[in-house]
Each structure stands twice: as structure tokens, then as C-alpha cells.
């Protein structure tokens, strides 16, 4: 198990931590956050490329805080691969084995094993300059795997690959994990994290904001930041609730945005999530019925499944529509009426 205890680091105006983190052996751990959140710094601290200002890093109970990078036995894959341009693919993969003092015969076997596993055999005598993006990524991965690292540290491994190569790489990473490899994967893409992680931590402004299983983090975001990062659009902090006793409850949300829902009020939730497909839009007030209110149409943004409609409803509100539903939507700037399906609203307590 890799443990980070009260790790902090100051880099100019940026301050990371204090961070507490536990990564179980054999797990697939994703560290997700926006650019500049501090995830790569944290990765470099784990790899030993940077020293923390305070705190400790333990691996299976052994303190590695002051152990230099070349003696940690952690494999690090940078997003831009950093293949050695003056070495062939073969020498790139064999680089770590030379240091480990592995016998020639065993080194050759290990080289063959990873070259075959990552389909690199035809490329062994090529130089990195003659490789495609996907091939270069596989070579970099083979090079780090050939050292048989105790933990594989991946810095945005899918970032420069096209969609089909990303799919292949995801499948490869899942397979490595199934075979027992402990993986720490840093990413800015919540979909990537959701697809791969067994355990997820979200980092923002140098601090861990939430940690848990992807299922839990995505359905119960700890705050607006996590909700937004995980792709949830209509997340609102609840400031006050009022239940007049007629089977409805009004919620005062962020930015003085208030809504009334036909729900039984029990206790004040800390936040509300209104799923994008949980909102109905109407052209006329008469169609919308009770509990609806007037909104202004700001923009229509094409998405793979249809369109996302941005509304000004006192606060910003996003609605998901299919191509077919878009036919009834007027021009940007028009006024419409919207009603929320109460059964869709998720309350975060």
C-alpha cells in the first residue's frame, strides 16, 4: 500500500496539500482534476522527482520520503512519453533492465515478453522518430513495465491519442490491472476516470476534495466543484428551504435562484442536482402548467446525443434534448416555460 501522510509542497504561488492518500496494492486509482490543480506535482512527489516540504510517503510501511527516484522502483509514464530519441525501441525498452543488473538471458526474455504483449516486435529496430503516436505510447509503456514496477504512475496516458487508440489503451490498462498491476492514473477527463478507476480522488487547487468509488463520487459529489468536474451541470447549493404544507417545497439556491418542487420536505438538503433530462420545456405557459416558470433561452450546443440547451432561469440551467425535440425550440433569446420533474431531482444531504 502507498500512503501519503500530510504531504505538502509550495511551488511559487501554488501550494499543494496537506494531502492524505492511501492507494491499496492491486488497485486502479485515478487522481482527477483540472489543469493546474496539482495532480502532476503530486505524481512527481510520489515518483521522487520532487521532494515534499513536509509529510511522509510510505510504501508497504517503509518510509520513502527521502529515497531518490532511481531507488523507489515506481514506474512513471509521462504524457509525452519521453522516449530516448538516440536509442532504438529495443534499447529504450531494455534501458531499465540494464540498471537492475538482470542477466542477459532473463533481460532478453523480459524484453520479448513485453514486446509481444504490447505488439511491438516489428518495431524493435526502429527509432522513436519513426513511430506513430499510439506506437510511441506503447513503447513508453513497455519500457516502464519491463522494470516490473511496484506501482505504475501514469500522467495523462490517453491525452494525445485519437478515439480508437484511446479505446485500445484503456483495454490494455484494464488488462494490466487485472493481471495485478497497481496503477495510479492522473487525468483531467472525468469520463476516463469513470471508465477505468476502481477508486477515485478529485483534486482542486492543490487539495483533495473528494475520494471514493467512482460510482459514489459521480452520484454524490461533495460540492459544486466536484459536480462540475464530473460533468454534472445543474448542481445547486441549497441556502434555505420553505415548506408551506401544501405538498410543495421551495428551495432558495445559489445566486438567489429559487425553485418550487412538489416534494415532501423532510430535512434541508445541502445541495440539489437536477439532471439535464429531468427538465421539461414548453413554448406557452398554458402547456407548462403549475410549478413552471419563465426562462430565457441562451444557447443551443450540439452534443453527440442531441443538443444541450442553456437557459437563464434566474441562475444558469442546462437541459438535454434529442435532435427530434429541438424542432420545437425557438431562436436564442426567446422566452420559454420550464418545469422540473420532481421525481428526477437528487438531494444531497
Amino acid at each position: 500500500m502507498l500512503e501519503l501522510i500530510d504531504i505538502s509542497k509550495k511551488l511559487g504561488a501554488f501550494r499543494l496539500g496537506p494531502v492524505q492518500l492511501r492507494i491499496e496494492q492491486g488497485s486502479y486509482f485515478c487522481l482527477a482534476g483540472r489543469s493546474g490543480a496539482g495532480k502532476s506535482v503530486l505524481l512527481e512527489l510520489m515518483a521522487g522527482l520532487k521532494m515534499p516540504d513536509s509529510g511522509r510517503i510510505l510504501w508497504k510501511g517503509t518510509d520513502l520520503t527521502l529515497t531518490p527516484a532511481n531507488k523507489r522502483g515506481f514506474g512513471l509514464l509521462f504524457q509525452d512519453n519521453q522516449l530516448f530519441p538516440h536509442f532504438t525501441v529495443k534499447r529504450n525498452i531494455a534501458y531499465a533492465m540494464h540498471r537492475l543488473g538482470i542477466e542477459r538471458k532473463n533481460a532478453d526474455l523480459r524484453l520479448k515478453k513485453w514486446a509481444e504483449k504490447l505488439e511491438l516486435v516489428p518495431l524493435l529496430d526502429r527509432y522513436p522518430s519513426g513511430l506513430s503516436g499510439g506506437e510511441a505510447k506503447r513503447v513508453a509503456l513497455a519500457r516502464v513495465l519491463a522494470m516490473e514496477p511496484s506501482i505504475l504512475l501514469l500522467d495523462e496516458p490517453l491525452i494525445s491519442l485519437d478515439a480508437s487508440l484511446q479505446r485500445d489503451m484503456r483495454a490494455l490498462l484494464r488488462r494490466l490491472h487485472r493481471e495485478g498491476q497497481t496503477i495510479l492514473h492522473v487525468t483531467h477527463d472525468y469520463r476516463e476516470a469513470y471508465a477505468l478507476a476502481g477508486e477515485l480522488a478529485v483534486i482542486g487547487d492543490g487539495k483533495l476534495v473528494q475520494q471514493g468509488s467512482p460510482g459514489h463520487v459521480f452520484t454524490h459529489p461533495a460540492n459544486a466543484f466536484v459536480a462540475e468536474f464530473t460533468g454534472l451541470k445543474n448542481y445547486f447549493n441549497v441556502i434555505r428551504t420553505h415548506a408551506p404544507g401544501n405538498g410543495t417545497c421551495s428551495f432558495l439556491l445559489d445566486n438567489n435562484f429559487s425553485i418550487e418542487l412538489a416534494v415532501n420536505h423532510t430535512e434541508t438538503p445541502s445541495a440539489l442536482i437536477i439532471p439535464e433530462d429531468g427538465i421539461l420545456l414548453f413554448q406557452h405557459e398554458a402547456e407548462a402548467g403549475p410549478g413552471s416558470w419563465k426562462v430565457k433561452l441562451i444557447d443551443k450546443i450540439p452534443t453527440p446525443g442531441g443538443f444541450e440547451i442553456e437557459l437563464d432561469a434566474g441562475g444558469k440551467l442546462f437541459v438535454k434534448l434529442t435532435d427530434h425535440q429541438l424542432k420545437d425550440i425557438p431562436e436564442n433569446g426567446s422566452t420559454m416555460w420550464c418545469r422540473i420533474k420532481p421525481e428526477c431531482v437528487r438531494m444531497i444531504r
Binding site: 532511481n70 531507488k71 522502483g73 512513471l76 509521462f78 519521453q82 534501458y95 537492475l100 519500457r143
Partner: peptide, 13 residues
């Protein structure tokens, strides 16, 4: 980063 990669692969400075 290329030097750091080599370090993380276990090579001495």
C-alpha cells in the same frame, strides 16, 4: 523530463 524518465527507470544521475 527525459532525464527524469531515465531516473525513474532506475538509472543513477
Amino acid at each position: 523530463r527525459m532525464e527524469q524518465t531515465a531516473l525513474s527507470l532506475g538509472a543513477s544521475p
